[in-house]
Simulated scan of single mutants.
Amino acid sequence: METKIIGGANLTQKIREITSDKSAFVVSDSNVALTYGSLWQGAKHYIIPAGEGSKTLDMFGKIAKAMLDSGCDRQTTVVAIGGGVVGDLAGFVAATYMRGVKWINVPTTLLAQVDSSVGGKTAVDLGDYKNIIGAFHLPEKVLVSTHFLYTLPDREWLCGMGEIIKTAFLDRKVYEILDGSPEKLLERDEAVLEACVHECIAYKRELTARDLYESGPRKALNVGHTIGHALEKTDKHRRSHGEYVLMGMEIESFVLGDRMDCERRKEISAFVAETGVDYPDFNPEEVAAACMKDKKNGGGAISVMLPDYENTREVRLSFDEVLRGVTLWKLSR
Rank of each mutant, 00 (worst) to 15 (best):
H237S: 03
Y279M: 11
T146M: 14
K233Q: 11
L68R: 09
L89R: 04
G180S: 04
I133M: 14
L207M: 09
V277L: 06
P182A: 01
I268E: 02
G134Q: 09
Y46C: 10
D308K: 04
D235I: 00
V26Q: 08
Q41N: 10
V322F: 08
R74A: 07
T312Q: 11
A273H: 11
G7R: 14
A123L: 10
S28V: 03
L193S: 09
H237I: 00
F282M: 13
V79G: 04
L317A: 04
F148W: 02
T12K: 12
A9P: 10
K295T: 09
I251A: 06
A90M: 01
K62D: 14
A290T: 05
G248V: 02
Y150Q: 14
V326K: 01
V27I: 14
A168G: 03
S28A: 10
L170A: 02
L39F: 05
T108R: 04
S117Q: 04
K121V: 11
K14P: 03
H198K: 14
K121Y: 10
E52M: 06
V287D: 07
K293C: 14
A50G: 06
L68S: 13
K204Y: 12
D29A: 03
N297L: 04
K55D: 12
G248E: 05
A270Q: 15
T151Y: 05
I164A: 03
T96G: 03
F136S: 14
G300Y: 11
D115E: 03
G325T: 03
G300F: 15
M59W: 08
G298W: 08
A273N: 13
R313E: 12
R99Q: 11
D154T: 08
G228M: 07
M292I: 11
G276R: 06
W329I: 02
A123T: 09
E194F: 12
T56D: 11
D154C: 06
M247Y: 05
I251Y: 09
S116R: 00
G71M: 05
A288G: 06
T146S: 13
M292N: 05
K55L: 03
D278G: 01
A112P: 06
D69F: 07
I18G: 00
Y129E: 09
P139C: 05
K130R: 12
E310L: 07
V272P: 06
A195E: 09
R172F: 02
A288H: 02
R16K: 15
C196F: 07
A195W: 12
D281Q: 09
R172C: 08
P49K: 08
W40N: 00
D258P: 01
R218G: 03
P139N: 05
L149E: 02
D21V: 01
P49G: 07
S253D: 05
G162W: 00
R316Y: 13
L212E: 15
L11N: 03
E321K: 07
D21N: 15
V86T: 15
I268Y: 04
I164W: 07
G8F: 07
